[in-house]
Design a protein around this nucleic acid. Structure first.
Lengths: 216, 216
DNA sequence: TCAATACTTGTCTATTTAGTCAACTTTTCA
DNA sequence: TGAAAAGTTGACTAAATAGACAAGTATTGA
């Protein structure tokens, strides 16, 4: 009732400010972890607020609602994904291209496990919030890689396999080390996955994929 | 207040009844789908009730609470898992054993996708409700398979690879076709995965795994 | 047939949840 | 320095949620 909005004497506007970005990032990070662990429905704004150590109302200052926050988290993660994988694609030998790609994917699983889990949860739920992205950038990317594989096959550089299944196999194998970490930890009787363990995983995957596809 | 529990003249007991099993199964099936799609926290008793077309109170007659229902669903799925995969294990040639195993896994992904997704969700969430199982049966199974691979390597029947990574790769590749169905559908521009598609996937995986491991 | 038991369900409650709001503090810049 | 804008937050509300309960109905076997 006593909000100082009566006088209109403009003394000077305001600059965008970088507090905004700081707080937003803090909330986004906490939200990513919560959504990755419990999914969209299972996550609660209260838990995200506690995890980010801000009052719940502050989240609503930066994000319209729960769906808006989730969308921002997904967008954030998609950008990260693009940044990491766009550099890969060349006219080099199949062995080099696939080796680098597998290394990059395993490294992504190691350095960004929650991002990987977030996508996995979305996919398992039927990808209700990713359809737009999947129909655009993703399909383009997929078609391009498919044609690369097909040219390799035509040149006799690899076995005559359906490229789609090869790509799925690489994705599945590399993401497994982020998404199914608990299963791996119990199977290997270790407390946490170390960097050498990821390197060993990448080496095994590269060995099997390259040899298995007849690339040598 | 007027519940007929006053007179104690026993005229005859009651037989277990098979209505129990019918209703329980109906609820368990609806619950499996709901938990697989939205996780433990994200699933609601109301939605499960609507999906099973029974009043919510009926669920509480058969299951103590939400956690009890979830536990029953997990137990149900674990039994199914055991039934399907326990037959596999022999002293045959590696190529036969692995081929049959990959076929069985892909077939499980095709015929029981929700079971696969339920486990995937649990794993991604950190497997908070599966620790007991994972520590017992699962670890035993894993150790046994590991030693089989090791004997093959010792006999020069396959390349010198860490068996753990080979097993992970088989699991990842085969479960992918159940867990990440939306991604596959969009990539391959199809409406739903047909049985021939699963067979083709199994063939590709068998080709790459067997050749990649030096089993021929 | 009938009483004991199994099963069903509408209604209620306490708690949790997403989201609002107005009062408040901090930051900016002229 | 001070006023305007940006940012913060405790208290509130309406809806959804898990679960309890009592009053029913259906099924069984003697």
């Amino acid at each position: 009732m006593a909000h100082p909005m009566t006088t209109n004497i403009s003394r000077g506007p305001y600059k965008p400010g970088r507090i905004r970005e700081q707080s937003r990032d803090l909330i986004l990070q906490a939200a990513e972890a919560e959504f990755a662990c419990h999914g969209f429905r299972g996550a609660t704004m209260q838990r995200i607020a506690e995890s980010a150590q801000v009052p719940k109302a502050n989240i609503h200052y930066y994000f319209s609602n729960k769906l808006g926050l989730y969308g921002a988290v997904l967008e954030n993660t998609l950008n990260l994904w693009d940044t990491v994988f766009n550099e890969l694609s060349s006219h080099d030998e199949p062995a080099d291209v696939l080796s680098r790609y597998i290394d990059a994917k395993i490294d992504f699983s190691r350095t960004h496990p929650t991002a990987s889990r977030l996508f996995a949860k979305e996919m398992i739920s039927g990808a209700p919030h990713l359809s737009a992205y999947l129909q655009q950038d993703y399909r383009l990317w997929f078609k391009q890689r498919m044609s690369i594989f097909e040219s390799w096959i035509a040149q006799g550089k690899m076995d005559d396999l359906d490229p789609a299944h090869v790509i799925f196999m690489i994705w599945a194998s590399t993401q497994y080390y982020a998404d199914f970490e608990p299963q791996i930890l119990i199977a290997t009787q270790t407390q946490h996955l170390t960097e050498p363990a990821f390197v060993a995983a990448a080496d095994s995957i590269k060995h099997i994929i390259l040899k298995g596809c007849g690339i040598c």
